[in-house]
């Protein structure tokens, strides 16, 4: 990390100085807080500006800050292959969490956003196919949220689970088991 050249912040602050918050350097990566309505514009700028060229999206993750408000957060990690820079973008979201999809900027965002949707219930507007990616079809709830019990809810396959609301649709995982 220490051998990496430092990020050229000038073009970013010049264009977005009023709308974003500079969070400094955390764990060796430059971080910015961006409001959700500007996220696509900000990402596209980082990718397409000739001095920056953040052409690789490493990761999109969700965070649940329950019981803080605003409750959710989407975190984007970018990498500039030509410049060897990394950037972290943080985006606080309300409840229910909604943010515009960046699949139009990086195609790899597709599966990352599906993961964040599956685990945290963050709805990415404009995503071409926002389905669950780890949990099975028909699963209810978002298991990485802090109010979801780690043991899961009690049912036929999980007799020691927590008491929870009755399911509203048949669970495909257990449907065919007599």
């Amino acid at each position: 990390m220490s051998t990496q050249p430092s990020l050229n912040r000038a073009p970013i602050m010049e264009r977005f100085g009023e709308t974003i918050e500079d969070l400094g350097i955390a764990h060796g990566i430059d971080a910015f807080a961006v409001p959700p309505e500007r996220i696509v514009e900000f990402c596209r700028f980082l990718k397409e500006h000739p001095a920056l060229q953040f052409n690789f999206l490493s990761d999109i993750c969700g965070v649940d800050h329950y019981p803080e408000m605003p409750r959710f957060e989407a975190v984007y990690h970018l990498y500039s292959l030509p410049n060897r820079w990394r950037v972290r973008i943080k985006c606080r979201l309300g409840d229910p969490p909604e943010v515009a999809s960046v699949t139009g900027v990086w195609r790899t965002a597709n599966w990352h956003e599906r993961e964040a949707w599956d685990m945290y219930g963050i709805r990415f507007e404009g995503h071409p196919d926002l389905r669950r990616i780890y949990m099975w079809e028909g699963f209810e709830g978002f298991p990485q949220r802090k109010d979801f019990p780690l043991r899961g809810y009690k049912d036929k396959l999980n007799p020691f689970g927590a008491e929870g609301p009755p399911p509203t649709q048949p669970d495909l995982a257990t449907r065919d088991i007599p």
Binding site: P149, L150, R151, G152, L157, N158, F160, G161
Partner: peptide, 8 residues
């Protein structure tokens, strides 16, 4: 694995 994802 006493979790939501594993059959008990």
């Amino acid at each position: 694995y006493n979790t939501y994802a594993v059959v008990q």
